[in-house]
């Protein structure tokens, strides 16, 4: 404002410039929050049915390649028999070898009386063993790692 009381064009435009800067900051935050909202929506829309994955660390002759991954159901059986959820055609695996179960909020591994045993992080499984994500298990010659479910696909 001028001393005379008239409106100073510079003062007004400076004020507008200041407000534009502040408004710009919030415009940025608005754009960011829209991106976040879209991410959240797509995450909840495509909530994965899988509760975890098995990633192959070491395989047997003719088995799945290293790095291949299998999604897991709440109860996943592993063995040589074709009726298993994951059937492994490995001579060192028993027909009904092991079972992975998801109870509460974590995974458990149980040996189903296999001949060569089931191993979690190198230790033979006796009874029911709790598993954490990142743990390695061995069935026959197949070594697999338990991974978290794949994050939902966005952008």
């Amino acid at each position: 404002m001028n001393v005379s009381g008239g409106i100073d064009a510079f003062a007004v435009s400076l004020w507008l410039l200041r407000i534009a800067f502040l408004a710009g900051l919030y415009l940025f935050l608005l754009a960011v929050s829209r991106t976040m909202l879209r991410d959240l929506r797509s995450a909840s829309a495509s909530t994965p049915g899988e509760l975890g994955r098995l990633v192959v660390v070491a395989s047997f002759e003719g088995g799945p390649p290293v790095g291949a991954s299998f999604p897991l159901d709440a109860v996943t059986t592993i063995g040589r028999d074709v009726n298993n959820t994951i059937s492994v055609d490995d001579p060192f695996a028993s027909a009904d070898h092991a079972v992975l179960t998801f109870r509460g909020s974590s995974w458990y591994l149980e040996d189903r009386g296999s001949t060569n045993g089931t191993y979690a992080n190198g230790a033979a499984v006796v009874g029911v063993a709790p598993l954490g994500f990142g743990d390695e298990l061995q069935v026959g010659q197949l070594r697999v790692r338990l991974d978290r479910p794949r994050p939902p696909r966005t952008g």
């Binding site: 088995g63 799945p64 390649p65 999604p71 055609d89």
Partner: peptide
């Protein structure tokens, strides 16, 4: 895509090759 992963697992197991 997710559905094919399970099927592939069976194929490897049955045919014995990737």
């Amino acid at each position: 895509p997710p559905p094919s992963a399970r099927r592939r697992a069976f194929r490897w197991a049955r045919a014995g090759q990737p």
